[in-house]
């Protein structure tokens, strides 16, 4: 990827996002009391200023991209394809693990969810030490539970099934 194409892409996204903020998000999701007479003191003023500045930066990025003379790729651009042919699938799997963690935390409890997440990630990252990974998957969440629950006094979620002391 070159700076020109990156700025073109970012400029389009920033400009569209600014439009979305001004036309939809701020009027819909920012509430101002009806008795505010002066716009400068309104809760909507600051978001509008930021949306305006985002639009200006978006236009500047587009201008920068459209007037750039060269289209040279970044020097440190990743040229070799990552290990295996499925980097996007690994990213997707990690996203699924994160979603499952959110579902698991209130139901299974933090310790058991963390154990499963640890093991799943270690295998997703193709660890060369599967036994060590499984041992760590059990020990690390337990140690963290011991610290946060018994030293820091945090009420770690226990879940609906197995409760720890």
């Amino acid at each position: 990827m070159s700076q020109k194409s990156l700025h073109l892409r970012l400029g389009i996204v920033a400009s569209l996002f600014a439009l979305f903020l001004v036309l939809y998000a701020i009027p819909t999701f920012v509430f101002a009391p009806s008795n505010v007479g002066n716009i400068i003191l309104s809760p909507k003023f600051w978001p509008y200023v930021l949306a305006g500045l985002t639009a200006i930066i978006g236009v500047a990025l587009l201008f920068n991209a459209l007037t750039a003379a060269s289209d040279v790729p970044f020097e440190d651009e990743e040229t070799v394809h990552p290990e295996g042919s499925t980097p996007w699938m690994r990213l997707g799997a990690l996203a699924v693990i994160m979603v499952l963690v959110m579902f698991g935390l209130p139901r299974l409890g933090m310790v058991w969810t963390a154990m499963l997440a640890f093991a799943a990630c270690a295998f997703l990252f193709r660890t060369r030490h599967p036994i060590a990974a499984l041992v760590c998957a059990v020990i690390v969440p337990l140690l963290l539970y011991a610290f946060f629950a018994h030293v820091a006094g945090v009420a770690i979620p226990q879940g609906n099934f197995v409760r720890l002391p």
Binding site: A114, A117, F125, R128, V140, Y145, F148, V154, P157
Partner: peptide, 20 residues
């Protein structure tokens, strides 16, 4: 040290730390 075991450990630490 095996980084592919370290990073899942970091993830678990993040979950505990942010919840706390």
């Amino acid at each position: 040290g095996p980084k592919r075991i370290l990073m899942p450990g970091v993830l678990v630490l993040c979950i505990y730390g942010v919840f706390a």
